[in-house]
């Protein structure tokens, strides 16, 4: 697997704020790589550094082994899908899509075929002559995608492209993007603050916080084995057990977390605690409980299988046992 993008001790500050702090990162060819983190964590900055809209204060950025840190955006073999789509309002959809080719001097006939193919890829064939102002949000987003992909870049950058879409549309687009990426085989670097989105689409995720990468890994690695408190709490929900209970339950003072779905109610296990149910919400696929255990809030998610529904009928205020296996405990750094 060759390396598509490499960050080598890259730092970038805006005034006194360190947007990227000695970031080291390797992104492989052909993978769907997500940069996940809260606002201001530096993920967008790193994306823009790859695109060339910012230059690093120190460190190097390499594209396929070549140092591009000082190259302007128009010289890099990288294309971007912007958060606000950035479609040119004075051009039609077709003109927008063919812009990159036109600028490179591709002949009109060839441009026409490529535009047709690109629009077919995003299912917008019939909209070629419309203006961006006449399209819906989802359609504009697809035009932006086509406009970027038509240039066959080695890396495609997507800056929170689904942020403005409603839930259903977002979910559809997530699947579509993933399919297109597999179809086209290009490296996708995807920036988002929505951890569920990242988990859905990515081959690997980098979790950002305050300009630094907290953890890089596959979705299951990130979710199942968060390395520190931040990752544990940012990705999914976590129950954090600090030194007091830790010692009680595991015999060592190291903090650990347990995911809500790993906890079972009403039975004893390797690690067992007792508490009072303070909240109970039926969420369709599962039921979420909040249990007060010696002043600590525990969140438990039990899947609503037929057997479980038949078995238990807890209510708020009940005293109940909660347990999980030692294996489910994840030590935090």
């Amino acid at each position: 697997m060759s390396v598509a993008v490499e960050f080598n001790q890259v730092s970038k500050a805006f005034g006194t704020v360190k947007a990227a702090d000695s970031v080291n990162l390797i992104i492989e060819d052909g993978e769907f790589f997500s940069m996940l983190g809260p606002s201001g964590s530096g993920k967008t900055t790193c994306l823009r550094l790859v695109a060339g809209f910012e230059t690093p204060d120190s460190g190097h950025i390499l594209l396929h082994g070549v140092d591009v840190s000082s190259l302007p955006p128009h010289a890099r073999d990288v294309n971007t899908v912007f958060q606000d789509y950035a479609l040119f309002p004075h051009m039609s959809v077709a003109e927008n899509v063919e812009y990159g080719l036109k600028v490179k001097g591709v002949a009109p006939a060839e441009r026409r075929t490529k535009v047709a193919d690109a629009l077919a890829l995003v299912h917008l064939d019939s909209h070629a002559e419309r203006r961006p102002s006449q399209l819906s949000g989802g359609q504009r987003q697809r035009v932006a995608l086509a406009r970027a992909l038509i240039n066959e870049p080695s890396v495609l950058l997507l800056d929170e492209p689904l942020g403005a879409l409603d839930l259903k549309l977002r979910q559809t687009m997530q699947t579509e993007l993933k399919n297109i990426q597999r179809q086209v085989g290009i490296t996708f670097i995807f920036v988002t603050h929505d951890q569920e989105e990242a988990l859905t689409m990515s081959d690997r995720i980098a979790v950002f916080n305050n300009g630094q990468i907290e953890q890089i890994g596959t979705p299951s690695e990130i979710y199942e084995s968060p390395r520190n408190l931040f990752v544990a709490e940012f990705v999914g929900t976590s129950n954090v057990f600090d030194s007091g209970l830790a010692e009680q339950l595991l015999g060592s003072r190291d903090r650990f977390t347990v995911r809500p779905e790993k906890i079972r109610l009403g039975v004893a296990g390797e690690c067992t605690v007792t508490g009072t149910i303070t909240d109970l919400v039926y969420l369709g696929m599962y039921t979420r409980y909040r249990i007060d255990v010696q002043g600590i809030q525990l969140t438990v998610a039990e899947q609503n299988t037929e057997s479980r529904l038949a078995m238990s009928s807890h209510a708020v205020g009940d005293e109940v046992q909660a347990s999980w296996s030692k294996e489910s405990c994840r030590l935090l750094a």
Partner: peptide
């Protein structure tokens, strides 16, 4: 919008 100019540069325009 600044993003339009960035988009143009991104697509290869000097």
């Amino acid at each position: 919008p600044e993003s339009l100019l960035e988009a143009s540069a991104d697509l290869g325009a000097s």
